[in-house]
Simulated scan of single mutants.
Amino acid sequence: MILDDLVATTRQHMVARQAQVSLADLQAQIAAQPVRRSFDVAQLMRQPMTVIAEIKQASPSKGQIVAPTAFDYQQIARDYTAAKVDMISVLTEEEYFKGSLAILTAVAQTTPLPILRKDFTIDPYMIYEAKAAGASAILLIVAILTDAQLTQYLALATELGLAAIVEAHDSAEVERAVMAGAQIIGVNNRNLKDFTVDFANTQRLRTSIPAEIAVISESGIKTRADVAQLEQAGVNGILVGETFMRAPNKQAMINELRGFKYDQN
């Protein structure tokens, strides 16, 4: 199973990083860092459609999306900032997505926008890493965590001033996310077990998520028509990766998905 491989690889890399940087070191870094702009959950609920634009070089399902020589993640961050997206998501998984915490740190130093650490969070150490690297939010995937871990990690994120997007793929996972106290649920249209995509997944699950919880749709969002469907379903935000990464003009693509509703001046 692909997800099992991703988790196992994540743990291997995390253990290697722990040997280099202790938890005490991370806590010292956090204590010394300046306050960074947080992700406003209330604003997520108020505005027409929040846009989280992703920076990633590759993925298990698509392979190499951007050639390494063309992967100028700091320029991509500047493009996203110019387009006035609401948050930038940075893949930090090293093997399958070819990301890193170093990329996240560089992006955080390039833009004032809040940053989501997109990774397979499996240990509190990774939450401290995210904060130390400059993230404003983390991803918690229900499928790879126990109920106790979800509750613990949400509490730690709050303690560190991080928002948390709790990712679910089916109704049982949505229920677990709600029970854990999630304020933001990301509905993944991609099945992480086989990487198939069902764009209608968000619309189906939206009705089972309480109105006071923000909903972000992830994966398979390619056109303005896709976004319009999600708006009609009462979705609060979108997380878009491949569509933006493949776009020669990222600001134009972002405007296109928004329906040219937003003033970019």
Rank of each mutant, 00 (worst) to 15 (best):
F199Y: 00
T10P: 00
L116R: 13
L205M: 04
S38Y: 10
Q149K: 12
A32R: 09
S208H: 09
A106N: 03
A31S: 13
F71Y: 11
V197M: 07
S136Y: 11
G220E: 08
N201I: 05
I30K: 11
V7L: 04
V15S: 15
F71R: 07
V142Q: 00
D79E: 11
T50Q: 04
I165E: 10
V21R: 10
A211K: 13
A42I: 14
S59K: 02
A70K: 11
L116H: 12
L192Q: 10
F199W: 00
A77S: 06
K118H: 05
A143C: 05
T207P: 02
P68C: 06
N236Y: 07
M45Y: 13
P112F: 11
I103M: 08
A19H: 14
L23S: 03
T81L: 06
A24E: 15
Q18Y: 08
A163Q: 10
G161W: 15
L239K: 04
R17Q: 14
G181C: 02
D72H: 10
S89G: 08
A82D: 07
A164C: 12
M245F: 01
Q74K: 10
G220F: 05
A31K: 14
L116F: 14
Y153H: 11
F199T: 00
I115N: 11
P124Q: 08
A24G: 13
E54I: 06
D170A: 06
D40E: 02
R17Y: 15
A228Y: 12
D170P: 06
D25W: 04
A135M: 09
S61Q: 01
D72A: 06
L140M: 05
E159C: 09
P60Q: 01
V85K: 00
V107R: 02
I185P: 01
V166T: 15
T158F: 15
I216N: 14
D263E: 00
A135S: 09
G99H: 01
V174A: 02
A31P: 10
V51G: 04
R46D: 14
L150D: 00
G181Y: 06
K98C: 04
Q43V: 07
Y96K: 09
D147K: 00
F195T: 05
M179A: 07
S61K: 02
M14Y: 10
F260A: 12
